[in-house]
Every structure is written in structure tokens, then in C-alpha cells.
Amino acid sequence: MNSYLFHSLESEKLYFKELSLADAQAIHNYASDIEVSQFIGWKLMNTLDETREHIETMLKRETAGTHLYASIVLKATHKVIGTVMIFNFDHEANRAEVGYVFHKDYWGKGFGTESVALMSHFAFTSLNLHKLHAIVVDENIGSARILEKNEYELEGRLKDHYFIEGKYYNALLFGKITPHKR
């Protein structure tokens, strides 16, 4: 996997960069927010040390070749505003899962849509993947909209798929097949 290229992607308003412990505080600012972490699959980071440990885990996964991660940086301020990831690679079927998380101050401003567009284009053109998918909690309407804007299709609902803080949630399964191979 070409993690160097993934870490150097950029668009009009954003650029990706390698995850770094030097950005632990910026990452902690959203990873410790209950509203942000509610539906993303990461446990709430209560301390900066927990966030550092989580970053170290992500870096180990990337080194092992099982995941690609990048910090999302706003060009105007050079602030880390989120994290994107490509993971759950199925090399036989030539597909993977995408994920993303943003500081809530940057929700609803198009940065999620822009980040998923960058990540998807990279996955299809540089990794030559056939299909990408994402699974989101059905109550996470903003995340579903990001995928829809990037032409991911709703492929199904998974009943009571997530159990979060004592409550079951349905999941929405979105998929996108490479536009080059349709």
C-alpha cells in the first residue's frame, strides 16, 4: 500500500498528512467529545494519554499494512480537524472499508464530503480497488449524507447491528464500485 501517497493527498481546502503523536492534543479535542465519538466505533478518549495510545495503535496497524490513516488538515489554518481511514481490506475481493471522523466545529461545512472524495479517488486509482463500503449508524444522518454526496449507494440495513451504551442501533451499509470498471 502506498501510505506515502495517501498522506500527501490534497484538495482545494484540505490536505492529508501522516498521523503523528505531535498532533495528539488536536486529535484528543475531537476523540474526547462524546457527541463526536458516539457513533464512530472508537471508544471515548477520556485522557490525552488514552488518545496517544490510540494513535500508537493506529500507527502500528498502518505499519503492519492492515490500515491506512491520515490526519485531515484545513489548509487555511493548518489545523488538524479530523481523521480518515481505509481498512478491512479484502485482497481477494479487492475491496475495503472507509471511515472518517471530524471535530464537531467542522461538521456541515463540506469537509467530510471533500475528504471522502479524496480518499475514494485514491482507493480506486492508486490502490486499484474494485469496491469501497462504509457502515454507519442509521442515526448518524450527517455521515450518511457525506456518502450519498460521494455517490455511495445504500445497499442495505443491518438491524440492531451496533450496541452502544446499552442501546441497539441499526446500521446502514453503503457501497461504491469503481467508476472505471462499471
Rank of each mutant, 00 (worst) to 15 (best):
H54D: 09
H54N: 15
I55S: 11
E56W: 01
E56V: 02
E56F: 00
M58A: 02
M58P: 03
L59E: 08
K60E: 15
E62I: 13
T63Y: 15
T63K: 14
A64G: 03
A64R: 00
G65S: 04
T66I: 04
T66C: 07
T66H: 04
H67P: 13
H67C: 03
H67R: 09
Y69F: 15
Y69H: 13
A70I: 02
A70T: 00
A70H: 00
S71F: 00
S71N: 00
V73T: 03
V73L: 01
L74D: 01
K75N: 04
A76F: 11
T77P: 14
V80Q: 02
V80F: 04
T83K: 11
T83H: 10
T83L: 10
T83D: 14
V84H: 06
M85K: 08
I86Y: 06
I86F: 05
I86E: 02
F87C: 07
F89E: 05
D90L: 07
H91T: 00
E92K: 11
E92C: 07
N94A: 13
N94V: 14
R95A: 02
A96F: 01
E97H: 12
E97L: 12
V98L: 06
G99W: 02
Y100Q: 07
H103W: 10
K104M: 02
D105H: 15
W107R: 10
K109G: 10
K109M: 06
G110M: 12
F111M: 09
F111A: 06
F111C: 05
F111H: 09
G112D: 06
G112E: 09
T113N: 10
T113D: 03
A117C: 04
A117M: 07
L118W: 14
M119N: 15
S120G: 05
S120E: 01
H121Y: 01
H121D: 08
A123V: 05
A123F: 00
A123T: 06
T125C: 06
T125H: 07
L127K: 06
N128I: 11
H130W: 11
H133R: 12
I135S: 11
V136Q: 14
E139G: 09
N140C: 03
I141H: 15
I141V: 11
I141G: 12
G142K: 14
G142Y: 11
G142M: 09
S143I: 07
A144H: 02
A144C: 05
R145W: 13
L147M: 08
E148H: 01
K149H: 08
N150C: 03
Y152S: 00
E153H: 05
L154H: 07
E155R: 12
R157T: 14
L158F: 08
L158G: 08
K159Y: 14
Y162M: 03
I164N: 15
I164P: 11
G166I: 01
K167V: 12
K167I: 02
Y168H: 00
Y168R: 01
Y169D: 07
Y169K: 08
A171L: 04
A171D: 05
L172P: 10
L172Q: 07
L172T: 04
F174G: 04
K176I: 04
K176Y: 02
K176N: 04
K176A: 02
